[in-house]
Design a protein around this nucleic acid. Structure first.
Lengths: 109, 109
DNA sequence: ATTTGATACCTAGGAATGATAGGTATATAG
DNA sequence: CTATATACCTATCATTCCTAGGTATCAAAT
């Protein structure tokens, strides 16, 4: 159903969308970008990111543009408007989730 | 391996351990307790919690004590010392994860 | 020249987690 | 006496991610 995202595992998805909000990026760059941006706290490898990019593109959240750059064939991704909307939803979900969990950790039940 | 907990899906596990830090509880109570404590933001059902309790007990993180109370047969769970240690580890992991993700969401890469 | 390492893409297979959807039994309330 | 709440349980499935590869090109080092 893909509509159920009850506990937000989907941190790789969220971070991919967030990185692409600021600038177009290609897969290999995203892999390194997430690790760098999170100080290695989150570091999904290519085996996670590439399939994720494909599925996000299939769902119409990303647009893929193969291009030559620096003698390399790269596939640049950008957010579609649906991708932006999804980013907002996931960010919201993350905020509420993090608030609830952190409060329980601090104060108990 | 059970040692890999890269993105912390395991929020139900974390919350179960945290609730049991304050007081012994039984399964049915934990199900309701998590939903209440998180204001329904996280609400894993019995199909999640019971198998989780069994596996945590098997791993020596919880101790189970069947007992009669109010004309009911209940299985009360308490944290073992290993359970306490695990709670600290997961809490720490959660803190670092949440910090990294929130910062990226706010500031970008 | 050729081997190595970095870049850049990819997939297959499996483990772990949780969601769905049941089932059993007893006590209490209507 | 029947329905609801309590209290336990499991099987099956989908999703997500990890591991562990594989291919090809380019630059740098031997």
């Amino acid at each position: 159903m893909a509509a159920n995202r009850p506990f937000l595992s989907g941190i790789p998805e969220l971070l991919v969308l967030r990185l692409l909000q600021d600038q177009e990026m290609y897969g290999y760059e995203i892999v390194a970008g997430i690790a760098a941006a999170t100080g290695q706290a989150v570091s999904p490898k290519e085996g996670v990111i590439y399939p994720l990019l494909h599925s996000l593109e299939k769902d119409g959240l990303l647009r893929a543009q193969p291009r030559q750059a620096e003698g390399r064939t790269r596939i640049y991704y950008t957010l579609t408007s649906r991708g932006v909307r999804r980013l907002f939803e996931l960010t919201d979900h993350w905020t509420r989730l993090h608030g609830a969990v952190s409060r329980v950790l601090r104060d108990g039940a």
